[in-house]
Nucleic acid binder design. Structure first.
Length: 93
DNA sequence: CAAACTATTCAGC
DNA sequence: GCTGAATAGTTTG
């Protein structure tokens, strides 16, 4: 099921640049419900395309890992990888 | 750490 | 439809 709030969340999260991270609160605020940070987490884990939605770029407010379908450890690893990729792209340009 | 709060979903009635 | 419970959170104490 796709609620308007979820749609907005997907659109916003999908636009997060490589190597960048956002917080659940930030996403919730952009989606129009700053207090719905919790719903963002539930939505992201129930998202229809967990592979094309960079949920690993969404973290808690204190930058700690909230959760991840493949495990918090993978999420952290992916974040480090993307950070390196972003630097590589920046150097190339 | 525990409690309250929030938006959404799900099971039961 | 409503209520109660649950969730990858946040805030307050």
């Amino acid at each position: 099921m796709m609620t308007p709030f979820a749609k907005k969340v997907y659109s916003i999260v999908a636009k997060i640049p490589l190597g960048q991270v956002r917080t659940y609160k930030w996403v919730a605020k952009c989606a129009g419900r700053q207090r719905a940070s919790r719903a963002v987490g539930t939505i992201l884990k129930n998202n229809p395309y967990p592979l094309i939605i960079p949920c690993h770029r969404v973290v808690k407010s204190n930058k700690t890992i909230g959760g991840y379908i493949y495990g918090e450890k993978r999420k952290k690893m992916i974040l480090e990888l993307e950070k390196g990729i972003a630097i590589c792209l920046a150097n190339k340009e």
